[in-house]
């Protein structure tokens, strides 16, 4: 079972961000099934977590639902992340969620990046803001990002007059790319290190199988940083 988690940072209800998230979710589900794998899709809406995120910044630990959401992202086989564009970048709420994610939580996890805005002039936000963020988090970002301006949704609804590169096409292409990465991996999310990238030990590993003290003592003398 491949676990897809969709993080959506829309604020209004209904939001165009959630609308795009739904399109990407359905397309990804179909693309993974088409490759013969089972798939589950779950949504993490950030709006109801806004207070908990602010509290986390102040206290350093996640409360209740936020804790569940962070764990879902950590355990995902693939992520779809969708943010509205605020002041030429991802929204503060969206960024805060990834700010409080534990280090290494999405190492090697395939991610599809997507954004919405009122005008197509923001379309490069995917390349200028989202892609570097997820590269920093050591996720594997699929080549196609999906940007939707308000006018794109018109093209979806009344597809009669839409050109060759409709949002539907881009959604399909991005979903197919994500499906390839997700089904190629062993599954089980970052904890299982699907791509073998994460050679660094995670906090959880230390609790299950602590580094023996003699090794810590030797390490302290070397050039390791702990």
């Amino acid at each position: 079972m491949k676990r897809i988690v969709i993080v959506s940072a829309g604020l209004s209800v209904p939001s165009s961000t959630r609308l795009l998230a739904d399109l990407l979710g359905e397309a990804t589900e179909g693309a993974i099934r088409a490759r013969g794998a089972e798939v589950s899709v779950e949504y993490v809406e950030l709006r109801p977590l806004a207070h908990a995120l602010a509290d986390h910044l102040l206290t350093g630990f996640p409360a209740g639902e936020l804790s569940t959401a962070l764990e879902a992202v950590r355990a995902a086989d693939g992520l779809i992340v969708v943010t509205p564009v605020f002041s030429a970048s991802y929204s503060g709420l969206f960024k805060t969620f990834f700010d409080v994610l534990d280090q290494g939580a999405i190492d090697g996890t395939p991610v599809l990046i997507a954004a919405t805005a009122g005008t197509p002039r923001h379309s490069l936000v995917l390349e200028h803001a989202l892609r570097p963020l997820f590269s920093y988090l050591r996720a594997v970002v699929v080549p196609t990002g999906v940007f939707a301006a308000s006018s794109d949704f018109g093209a979806v609804a009344g597809s009669a007059g839409a050109g060759a590169d409709t949002i539907g096409k881009r959604v399909e292409r991005a979903a197919a790319e994500l499906a390839v990465l997700v089904t190629a991996s062993g599954g089980g999310g970052a904890a299982h290190d699907p791509h073998g990238h994460g050679s660094s030990r995670r906090v959880e590993d230390e609790f299950d199988n602590p580094t023996p003290f003699e090794e810590l003592l030797r390490g302290a003398r070397g050039d390791s940083i702990r």
Partner: peptide, 13 residues
């Protein structure tokens, strides 16, 4: 501060 653990280990030893 990045040497926090190493400092704790060596100094206490």
């Amino acid at each position: 501060i990045r040497q926090g653990i190493n400092l704790a280990v060596e100094n206490y030893a």
